[in-house]
């Protein structure tokens, strides 16, 4: 089984800094970790390898420091890692990111299964998985909590939807996004960490994966962030008064204004 895991390096804390010109996040100087959902994806990929044999290749698109996340992935059991990194990739929205990742996956064909984490904790969109699948013209299933059966050409999974669990059969090659319920990620082993240190992680540019620079990065992004702002919540200590019905209404209005319904 050849499994490809798509990971993203995200900031460790949710404290944010914004580049005022491009309206994109400043990523330097902030400690990076593997996006937590992706650690579940990677763990699942490594377990598949341990059960059925094969290889796990990890791919990430990011600035040069994303290399650390790929090293961590190797320490956790991935066999190979590839970093897509270039000025041209920077500032990408989900579609531009998906195009770059799909181009990289193409270069790694043939493969059986692509696994992604449900979403990245910074962007929170959960779009890249399904978009990559579409661009590669392969099927996908999101929110997988368990792989029931897996064999060449076919996988059966349990998928979480609102209030229910679907059992879905998907032909391979295909892509799944996974939720935290699927496993508990391991801690890396010392031997794994040492192997990761020595690992050669190639860096691919748009030319390396055969994609035009116009299709990736800020240039290739159909969406543009016009502005970012930090939602203001002060501890105002406002005492609401009135009848129970009145205070209930007043409270709900204030919560709604803050985005809670």
């Amino acid at each position: 089984m050849k499994v490809i895991v798509l990971i993203k390096q995200v900031p460790e804390t949710t404290e944010v800094r914004i580049n005022p010109e491009t309206n994109t996040l400043v990523r330097e100087g902030v400690k990076g970790i593997i996006n937590p959902f992706d650690t579940y994806a990677l763990e699942e990929g490594v377990r598949i390898k341990e059960r059925l044999g094969g290889t796990v290749v990890v791919v990430s698109m990011g600035p040069p420091q994303a290399r650390e996340a790929l090293q961590d992935a190797i320490a956790l059991g991935a066999d190979e890692a590839v970093l897509l990194s270039d000025r041209a990739f920077a500032g990408a929205d989900t579609l531009a990111t998906s195009r770059a990742l799909a181009a990289a996956v193409r270069k790694l064909e043939p493969y059986d299964l692509i696994i992604c984490g449900k979403q990245a904790i910074d962007g929170d969109t959960a779009q890249v998985g399904p978009e990559v699948a579409e661009l590669l013209d392969i099927p996908h299933v999101t929110y997988v909590r368990r792989i029931r059966e897996l064999e060449p050409g076919r996988v059966v999974v349990e998928r979480m939807v609102e209030g229910a669990v679907e059992t879905v059969e998907m032909s391979l090659p295909g892509l799944i996004t996974v939720v935290k319920d699927i496993n508990q990620p391991r801690i890396p082993s010392l031997k794994g960490i040492m192997k990761a240190r020595r690992a050669a992680i190639p860096v691919w540019t748009p030319a390396d994966v055969g994609i035009s620079e116009e299709l990736v990065g800020l240039r290739g992004s159909p969406t543009v962030v016009e502005k970012v702002f930090v939602p203001q919540v002060e501890r105002r200590g406002e005492i609401l008064e009135g009848s129970p019905r009145e205070v209930a209404e007043a409270l709900l209005s204030r919560l709604e204004a803050l985005g809670v319904r």
Partner: peptide, 14 residues
């Protein structure tokens, strides 16, 4: 919202 709601982004698709 992004960053778990710690940041709000205004986005357009021109």
């Amino acid at each position: 919202p992004a960053f778990g709601g710690n940041l709000m982004a205004v986005v357009v698709c021109p």
